[in-house]
Nucleic acid binder design. Structure first.
Lengths: 204, 204
DNA sequence: GTCTATATAATGATAGAC
DNA sequence: GTCTATCATTATATAGAC
């Protein structure tokens, strides 16, 4: 598997991607030039085209990879059990996965409008898989009488918006540890779906 | 107050602002050119500079106006009473104010990074006033034993993220009416702060 | 207040040498 | 695989005529 002298595509590729994620998350896709990305990895702009067909492909590749990693990690972290157990696993997974990826979260939710229609549809499809994963849990809990949810579709979107919003304020050196954040949000989620009320009532 | 012939700044100004809001919400600030904004109001790019000093000032003006209108409307809609009553008023106000303003919501949350540091600080100051308004309600309810909240600061951010997320999927011709959306989200908010549990327990 | 014309700079992408 | 050089396009902003 030895490579030719001067060939660094297996190292340079990831460096280009990482620099692009940082710059786009910071300034926005349209505001970042290929020259800026190249400068961040000590290259000339022309050389970037060895790693991407064009600027649009680079953006799509970054977003698709992020979503695929999300779904893959989620599949590994999923648990079996009752709806409450699975909801807790989902909540904690979502937080743990997204907290160290604030750049990717920002990028994935802010740059959808800069994708071509075809690429946009591809990302939306992946995101729907993730949403459906959560909604299936809510529907199960609802049917089992464990949750009290007015509309599982809306509750799904509301919970994901609430949890993903953490990325807007979280700082690694902030007031709260990741464990503490997990606890606070798990309490909010539990309450929101009406699980805490059932638990309190049942305990009497 | 008659104006000179050919003077339309009192009409053209709002038209420029409205076109800018639409275009920036759709494509992003950096991706929209002054020429595009001018074309949307049937003008040449140079004439826009009668209405804004530069592109950055235009963006800041749009975001500042949106935040000021939010705070003004909120001041008018605020009610007195116990924490639960005020939380319900806040929740319903937030939804009713933001639902018809999806462009402004998008713009205000997506284009913060395209503001100069000074302008960014100005917008953040206004946004903090709004957040503090909600947190004061949560703190009051917590002290009165009406709410069960682990961290009022985090709950504030979580609720606002949840409510503002409506703008990401709401369509006027969608499945749910505004009234129905208000009911669903008010139930979620009530649950999230632990008010429903207290109510259920107290009722027994 | 709006136009045309333009100064000045930057952009995405490509060609060809090495 | 990376470089230099460049093309063709587009950008913000300004000047001056009307």
């Amino acid at each position: 598997m030895a490579r030719k002298t001067g060939s660094h595509s297996d190292i340079t590729g990831p460096r280009v991607r990482d620099a692009a994620i940082s710059l786009i998350a910071e300034k926005g896709f349209a505001a970042v030039s290929m020259r800026q990305i190249a400068a961040a990895v000590d290259m000339q702009a022309g050389a970037l085209y060895n790693y991407t067909a064009d600027k649009q492909s680079l953006l799509f590749d970054l977003m698709r990879t992020h979503m695929e990693e999300l779904l893959e990690a989620r599949a590994e972290a999923a648990v079996t059990g009752d709806a409450l157990t699975r909801l807790e696993a989902f909540t904690r997974f979502h937080i743990r996965f997204h907290l160290p990826r604030s750049r990717e979260v920002f990028l994935s939710y802010m740059e959808l409008r800069n994708l071509t229609p075809e690429n946009f549809a591809g990302i939306e499809r992946l995101r729907k898989v993730y949403e459906d994963d959560l909604e299936a849990i809510l529907i199960d809990g609802q049917r089992a009488g464990v949750f009290k949810i007015a509309d599982t579709k809306i509750a799904t979107l509301a919970l994901i918006a609430m949890l993903t919003g953490i990325s807007n304020w979280y700082r690694p050196d902030g007031r709260l540890s990741i464990d503490r954040i997990e606890e606070i949000y798990w309490a909010l989620v539990q309450n929101a779906v009406g699980a805490a009320e059932i638990a309190a009532t049942a305990a009497e």
